[in-house]
Amino acid sequence: MRRLRLAIAGLTACSGCQLSLLNCEDELPELFEKFEFHFFPMACSPALLTGQYDAALVEGCLSMPHENELLQELRRRSVYLIALGTCAICGGVAALRNGEERELLRQQVYGQHLVAGETFDPMPLQNVVQVDAAVSGCPPEKQELLRMLAGLVRGVLPVNIDYPVCTECRMKENLCLLMERNALCLGPVILGGCGARCPSLAVPCEGCRGALAEANLAEALEIYAQKGFDRQIVLERLRRFSPEWQQ
């Protein structure tokens, strides 16, 4: 069987998603059998885009013109374009200060020095290209990454998850931190799939997998308010990974 040609790129992000892939150490030999990691600047050089790709896996959000060019190029050359991680899907941490004056933000970080090029409000990939599938998480779960890749080998895309973190949390028979400990757990409105990683360790969900498509935000805010959480604090917490939650 022909090895599938992959392009793996990182835009504005921490490279953690790509690293999660490299951390699949036990599976790497098998992955090399099935895939040609043709374009993967973080892991192999030289990295030049040539020809067509079976899939492009893109980490990070879009915040600079040259990233947009790279993304368009990847899209043109790939059968599937897959968003890797929460930043690529909804902007993530980089989009935290969206809406604020960019020049001011730049000065806060870099002072008067002239650095980098032009930037714009960080945005998810889907704002500019068609995204065929997504693997959420900050970073994504190893199992989800491997399942997605195994699916590609068979020519299928991953199934969308449509349940919140709470679902797997209850399946694990965890103590509910929201109900029993009055903790600000974001589980009810956050996309599941992590096996309720944090609440399983008695740590409230911080929402790193981003917003659940059918999240009932109004009711969740009502419940948090009843528990005495300030609405602004809740919204700020929610926006940490899901900037689309503006209210």
Binding site: Y163, P164, C166, T167, R170, M171, C176, G187, P188, V189, L212, E214, A215, N216, A218, E219, A220, I223
Partner: peptide
């Protein structure tokens, strides 16, 4: 429906 978070707890349990 307006009050339900869709968390699934009611069915799972």
């Amino acid at each position: 429906a307006d009050c339900c978070l869709g968390c699934g707890a009611c069915s799972l349990c």
